[in-house]
Amino acid sequence: MMIWLIVLALPIGACSTPMRSSPAMRSSSSLPDDRGGSDQSRKGARTSAYEPQASAAIAPQYSLPVAALLEEASRQEAAKDLTAAVGSVERALRIEPRNAHVWHRLASLRMKQGQYGMAVELAAKSNSLAGGDAELVRDNWRLMARGYRAAGDSDSAEAAERKAQAYR
């Protein structure tokens, strides 16, 4: 039934130009709000059938210098020099300040250093820039869940885990 309606609607949409940006077409995805609001996510679920397919996992994209810095960070991390690794990732962020993957990398380093509060904030920051990268968003929620748990905040940890599960 629904599919039929869409098939019917598409050619009409194509000939009336403003339709391209009608609210329903624009409303992005079924992904819940990044900070709570379960009724809103339910509302999102209602429109999910008309949304474009959930984007497949996108391989992280970095420019060459950022890739070089992240490799360096991995080497430093392997050599147990986490401070230096953090420094390299921060350098990468100066070159690509809006790359959600780089923010996630920083979050995981902070997690490893035992700076849980900072790790949670950085993962939230990564999420705010992650766009449709569901896999990354899930990883960030998982990281936040671990961070909350390590910091002894089990309520927030469970909430974050539920969020992560929604992105499977």
């Binding site: 403003p18 609210p23 409303s27 709000d33 990044d34």
Partner: peptide, 23 residues
């Protein structure tokens, strides 16, 4: 500005402030 997940775009009639559509 990357639009956060919590935000949607809606057509509005500016005169009345009520919901409209593109037409």
């Amino acid at each position: 500005l990357p639009r956060p997940e919590s935000v949607e775009a809606v057509w509005v009639d500016p005169m009345s402030g009520l919901r409209a559509d593109a037409r």
